[in-house]
């Protein structure tokens, strides 16, 4: 469970809190556990719920003031919307890196650097596979905003990976 929480929140502290919450809820609701699934599955299901709650709470607390802070595109002139020279993608030498544990660590690191709201969107969509509608409801955003944030999150992840992995 601890590993699961870390793989979703990218933080040991938050994971500890979430585990604690999960056990508490589980204790309170232990009568509703009918033994249809294993205890582990049941606990993980509660934990998942806690993770969504965690993202929702944060999306309320932190107002988004990152107005295009990390936008890698030109925003005016004839070439508006084109890659900025310093941010344009370089050629990557992709080999069988996908099995590489170090690479996965770097990605984890990059995920942890995402602005919280983008990370919420990205994790709920790509890791928890929650439907769009539900994400929008939980985070209080419109669907087009969700797409934009997913897009920005990917742009930043790509750049982070390029800087920390492929440029070495």
């Amino acid at each position: 469970m601890y590993n699961y929480a870390i793989s979703r929140t990218h933080s040991t502290e938050i994971s500890e809190d979430l585990i604690q919450d999960t056990f508490l809820s589980a204790l309170r609701a232990k009568d509703s556990f009918k033994g249809k699934s294993t205890e582990k599955t049941w606990l993980i299901a509660i934990l998942k719920r806690k993770i969504i709650d965690y993202y929702r709470k944060n999306s309320r607390n932190i107002e988004d003031n990152l107005i295009d802070k990390a936008k890698p595109f030109k925003d005016s002139g004839f070439f508006s919307g084109h890659w900025l020279d310093k941010n344009a993608p370089h050629e990557w030498n992709i080999s069988d890196d996908i099995e590489n544990q170090e690479l996965i660590k770097i990605i984890q690191y990059c995920l942890s650097l995402l602005p919280l709201k983008w990370a919420s969107c990205f994790n709920l969509k790509n890791l928890e596979e929650i439907p769009n509608q539900e994400i929008c409801k939980e985070l209080g955003i419109s669907e087009s905003n969700l797409w934009v944030m997913l897009h920005r999150a990917r742009l930043q992840l790509r750049e982070c990976l390029e800087i920390n992995w492929f440029k070495k």
Partner: peptide, 9 residues
């Protein structure tokens, strides 16, 4: 690159 990234995710 983004396809590669998605594979790892």
């Amino acid at each position: 690159q983004i396809k590669f990234l998605d594979k790892i995710i």
